[in-house]
Design a protein around this nucleic acid. Sequence first.
DNA 1: TTTTCGAAAAATTTTGAAATTTCGATTTTC
DNA 2: GAAAATCGAAATTTCAAAATTTTTCGAAAA
Lengths: 219, 219
Amino acid sequence: MRRNVINRRIDTPDIYEDLKAKLVSGELAPGRKLKPTELQGGYDCSPNTLRDVLMRLCNVGLVEFQMQRGFRATPSSLERRSDVARFRILLEREGAAESMASGGISWEADLTAAHHRLLHIERQIVSADDVQPFLPLWTDAEREFHETLISACGSPLLIETYARVYLQFRQQFVGQQRDFGSNYFEAIIAEHQAIVDAALARDQHGCQAAIYDHLKRNL
Amino acid sequence: MRRNVINRRIDTPDIYEDLKAKLVSGELAPGRKLKPTELQGGYDCSPNTLRDVLMRLCNVGLVEFQMQRGFRATPSSLERRSDVARFRILLEREGAAESMASGGISWEADLTAAHHRLLHIERQIVSADDVQPFLPLWTDAEREFHETLISACGSPLLIETYARVYLQFRQQFVGQQRDFGSNYFEAIIAEHQAIVDAALARDQHGCQAAIYDHLKRNL
DNA sequence: TTTTCGAAAAATTTTGAAATTTCGATTTTC
DNA sequence: GAAAATCGAAATTTCAAAATTTTTCGAAAA
């Protein structure tokens, strides 16, 4: 017999997702100390529950943990940024090549769909005054697109690792970036198009080159 | 007021290392359920401390966690084994190539030393009746050797990911294996030799081929 | 002025128990 | 007899407080 007049309970998964979003968007900036006792205020739970959630966020690399020294948002640095970018390129090139080799019709359909959604948002951004309101949507669509690209590679481990690295990539780059150049998104649109075209044409080298071109600015 | 005449306190790091060893060696078999309350008996601590340690072991992929459903040692399956092997080959080939490109004298020295230690143990194993007592030593030396091989690649992320995957590899394969063929280790010695020779000769393609030859039996 | 030391303050980790959820087995119903 | 519902035991998650460790900060010594 549940006796919840008001549902005061906040699910742990919700706290996890909320913190993840704040980490990726830069609201909780890289390097910032994350004290369970402070964060507890925002959510309605005990410090230990927050501790638990923070420990889980370590699994994806968004949070660092040191014994007796607590948690902090993974710091940002020139070295780390270029490291993340390089590793992402490695994984995405490999995953895309494998997907092109073994992906079937349904992979093509998924990729086309994901690209269509992404393109739609990017066109809106190009013709809008302010980018900010679109960022969360765009981030999701971009992630979906890139994850679909490698989704048929047949390696769960590669897919999982890529998901982690993608999140770290967002944390290191986009979260900080407030000022996108005027034709930044026009360039991005062309780059994504090049990736899709090569992928659907099963042109492995072309696709790998397109991926590199898409990400080289972050090296 | 410390009230331990004898140091009955077991440090969390020790519990972590001990559990990790049991997971990698197969004492805690893949797929086995890991209940904080049961494990608590072995160490002198509360179930929640064990919960904490188990959550950390998820970071390296040795333990799986599901909400409301607790922990279990990462299960073993044909698909997972071949996935881990493939991914390990990818990372090691990339890391070795980068190390050969940018590693200096001290990398060569480290690699030579690690290989020397490994070779020493493997020769002992070849001329011994029972392999078992050597396994922990061999596992450590083998890990050290492979990690040294990629240590000069310049990518902390690659190195960290490789460490994780190596542990999973051990958990999936060696932990289960009780019966090594009679000339198994003689073959291994030759393979490790081929890797070192190519690496020190800065022969990228040769080294990548040697790495593949070393690990292809697990695909 | 700089360094070192130690006590106070703050933060982290551990604990044991309570609340919640899941799992297995028995009973009920169709 | 098979499927569904129910009940109790076991396991998991959460909590608040105690124990431990680290950090801070001011005073004394070099």
